[in-house]
C-alpha cells in the first residue's frame, strides 16, 4: 500500500515536472515560479487535511517562509525591488502569527 502511494506521488510529480520544463514554452524564471506554486499546493493540502490544529499551524508557518522565496523570484522577474519589501513584512507577520497561534494552542492568554 505504501509503495503504491509512493509511486502515485512520483507519477504526479514527474507529470508536473514534464509539463513545466519540457512542454510549455516560457522563460526559465517563470518555470521556477511554477515549481514554488506547486509546492504551495502541497502546503495547502496539509492546511486542509491536517488531522490536528498543530499541523495546520505548522503549514501556515511554512507557507510564510515559502512566500518569501516566491516574492524574491517575482521581484527578479519584474526587476522591481519593492516585492522584497512585501516579503520582509510578510515574514514578520507570519512569525508573529505563529507565536500567537501557539499561545492559544497552549491555552494561555495572549497578554501573558
Amino acid at each position: 500500500m505504501k509503495i503504491i502511494r509512493w509511486f502515485a506521488g512520483l507519477v504526479v510529480i514527474l507529470a508536473f515536472l514534464y509539463m513545466n520544463f519540457f512542454y510549455l514554452e516560457i522563460e526559465l524564471i517563470v518555470r521556477l515560479i511554477n515549481v514554488i506554486l506547486f509546492c504551495s499546493l502541497f502546503v495547502l493540502f496539509r492546511v486542509i487535511v491536517g488531522p490536528s490544529p498543530a499541523d495546520r499551524i505548522v503549514a501556515v508557518d511554512i507557507l510564510g517562509v515559502l512566500i518569501i522565496g516566491l516574492l524574491a523570484l517575482t521581484s527578479l522577474w519584474n526587476d522591481q525591488s519593492f516585492f522584497l519589501d512585501v516579503g520582509l513584512i510578510w515574514a514578520l507577520m507570519s512569525f508573529i502569527a505563529s507565536l500567537a497561534f501557539s499561545k492559544i494552542l497552549e491555552g494561555r492568554p495572549l497578554d501573558d
Binding site: S52, I57, V58, D61, V65, A91, F95, S98, S102, L105
Partner: peptide, 19 residues
C-alpha cells in the same frame, strides 16, 4: 528568516506537546 524560523518551530513544538 534564519533568526525567526527556528524560534517559531520551537514555540510550535512546545505548544503542541503541552496541549
Amino acid at each position: 528568516i534564519f533568526l525567526t524560523s527556528p524560534v517559531a518551530a520551537h514555540v510550535i513544538a512546545r505548544a503542541s506537546h503541552r496541549s
